[in-house]
Simulated scan of single mutants.
Amino acid sequence: MEIKILGSGCSNCKKLEANAKEAVKELNVEADITKIQEIRDIMKYRVMRTPAIVINEKVKMFGKVCTVDEIKKYINEEI
């Protein structure tokens, strides 16, 4: 599973990344978590507000920090 955190590196982006790592840990799934910070790369996902989370190349949420439980739900949709 591939999880991408889209954002400039702000505190909300860092919190979303931490929540994603916690969700992966709690679900005991294997996932590569990467940060995408270049605006051109973020725009490829048609995301206009960050932070955003992309799982297996599907934008799941943008413009807010997802909770651990929300991310777990998104991960389960992709398993």
Score class of each variant (00 low, 15 high):
residue 66 C to T: 12
residue 23 A to Y: 03
residue 41 D to K: 13
residue 3 I to P: 04
residue 40 R to M: 11
residue 69 D to R: 14
residue 13 C to W: 04
residue 21 K to C: 04
residue 20 A to N: 06
residue 33 I to C: 06
residue 48 M to A: 12
residue 14 K to D: 10
residue 53 I to F: 06
residue 38 E to H: 14
residue 21 K to H: 08
residue 15 K to D: 10
residue 41 D to S: 13
residue 17 E to W: 00
residue 4 K to T: 05
residue 22 E to T: 11
residue 73 K to A: 13
residue 21 K to M: 09
residue 57 E to N: 15
residue 70 E to S: 07
residue 37 Q to E: 10
residue 58 K to F: 08
residue 24 V to A: 01
residue 13 C to F: 04
residue 53 I to L: 02
residue 58 K to G: 07
residue 19 N to Q: 01
residue 9 G to T: 06
residue 20 A to D: 03
residue 70 E to I: 04
residue 41 D to I: 04
residue 24 V to N: 03
residue 50 T to M: 03
residue 60 K to N: 09
residue 29 V to T: 09
residue 44 K to D: 12
residue 37 Q to L: 09
residue 29 V to E: 01
residue 61 M to I: 08
residue 73 K to R: 15
residue 53 I to Q: 00
residue 60 K to I: 03
residue 18 A to S: 13
residue 32 D to I: 11
residue 64 K to M: 09
residue 79 I to Q: 08
residue 10 C to S: 11
residue 3 I to G: 03
residue 58 K to D: 11
residue 28 N to Q: 12
residue 49 R to P: 01
residue 36 I to F: 03
residue 61 M to Q: 05
residue 63 G to Q: 02
residue 36 I to H: 14
residue 45 Y to E: 08
residue 35 K to V: 07
residue 56 N to S: 12
residue 8 S to E: 06
residue 60 K to R: 15
